[in-house]
């Protein structure tokens, strides 16, 4: 099993956390949804995976490139 850091691709505010540690998430499915540019922008799983850790909370501001979750695949 390989652990991977999932970065935010955009600066924004964490609007909703869609998956919790232990959840299985398919490739391109959202783990977290950010609010940025007045859009709801998902941070999606890069591959089929299990969520290991969520590193942000709803309402947090995240920067582009910041790790927001750790997954295992």
């Amino acid at each position: 099993m390989k652990r991977t850091k999932v970065p935010s691709e955009i600066t924004g505010k964490v609007w909703k956390i869609e998956a919790k540690p232990g959840d299985k998430v398919a490739e391109d499915e959202p783990i977290i949804i950010l609010e940025s540019m007045k859009m709801e922008i998902p941070v999606s799983a890069p591959v089929d995976c299990t969520v290991v850790e969520i590193l942000v909370a709803e309402g947090d501001t995240v920067a582009e490139g910041q790790t927001v979750a750790i997954i295992e695949s």
Partner: peptide, 8 residues
């Protein structure tokens, strides 16, 4: 593509 970076 709005799916990535909201299309920005």
């Amino acid at each position: 593509n709005p799916m990535f970076k909201g299309g920005a």
